[in-house]
């Protein structure tokens, strides 16, 4: 409790009012962003069971180099609407939740957008959390994996790696970018024995071709550090965001993936010895 909210002692005194705000911090300058003392944040959330184990403080960093057709957070594509935040403020929240993470088996997850679009910012957050003993998780497409230096990998306990398609042609169709950097990043994580959960979004009519599922599964199976694969059914919960942002949305008529479709895909991953939770 801040001192300014203490009640007055005398009942007839002027009632207490919350005094002025904590002194307003200066606006970050370009150098602060460059050096990771500040960053562009889309939002934060305490999320359970989605972005890694337990209940996790998830920072959604703004900006992404990919334009995935099925993105359910297209409002994180750009940074111009994002909040400019001081890294230290975000670290303070991690510190506040540290004891909760111990109870929930959770930790910190950086998601986005693409967190590696702001490597200095992401690196400082991950490093501070790691220093506090907080479990850290990076949720990434891997496209900018080259920007994650070895120090950053040291500070990460788990990588959630989105494998969006199994070959270059489809990857480009889905994301407008190339697959090779993701594969290189995946290999680097494998070489360092870094725990990885692969995530694959099953989009009917786009990523659900049997040969694509098999190609993704083969990639995943080639990395012994992959602990788990989540097959995520495509859903339409992001549709209204595309409409609000007035960006053409190519999947407006695409049906959501059914339970059976997901189970079939899961069977393919399991047949290659991969762990898919029920």
């Amino acid at each position: 409790m801040t001192a300014c909210l203490q009640p007055a002692d005398e009942s007839n005194a002027v009632p207490p009012v919350p005094a002025s705000l904590p002194p307003r911090q200066a606006e970050p300058e370009p150098r602060d962003f460059r050096e990771g003392r500040a960053g562009f944040l889309h939002s934060w959330d305490m999320v359970t069971a989605v972005n890694g184990p337990g209940t996790r403080l998830t920072y959604f960093l703004a900006g992404c180099p990919l334009r995935c057709q099925y993105c359910h957070n297209p409002d994180t594509f750009c940074q111009d609407q994002a909040e400019q935040v001081w890294t230290e403020d975000l670290i303070r929240r991690v510190r506040r939740y540290r004891s909760s993470f111990l109870l929930t088996g959770g930790g910190l997850t950086l998601s986005g957008g693409e967190p590696l679009l702001q490597p200095a910012f992401a690196g400082r957050l991950l490093h501070s959390a790691h220093e506090m003993g907080v479990h850290t998780c990076l949720d990434t497409s891997g496209f900018l994996g080259a920007l994650a230096d070895d120090q950053m990998l040291e500070d990460i306990d788990l990588v959630l790696l989105d494998l969006k398609a199994g070959d270059e042609a489809l990857y480009h169709q889905v994301t407008t970018q190339t697959l090779a950097p993701t594969l290189a990043f995946g290999q680097r994580l494998a070489d360092q024995h870094k725990p990885v959960w692969i995530r694959f979004v099953l989009v009917p009519g786009l990523t659900d071709r049997p040969d694509n599922i098999r190609a993704v599964a083969l990639r995943a199976a080639s990395w012994p550090n992959v602990e788990r694969v989540d097959v995520l059914p495509f859903h339409q919960m992001g549709r209204h965001k595309w409409e609000t942002l007035d960006i053409p949305y190519q999947l407006a008529d695409t049906p959501e993936a059914t339970r059976e479709q997901v189970e079939q895909a899961v069977a393919v991953f399991r047949s290659l010895g991969l762990n898919c939770p029920d």
Partner: peptide, 11 residues
């Protein structure tokens, strides 16, 4: 996860 949330909330 529900056990963890209750533990953390009450803490």
């Amino acid at each position: 996860n529900l056990v963890g949330i209750l533990d953390a909330g009450m803490q």
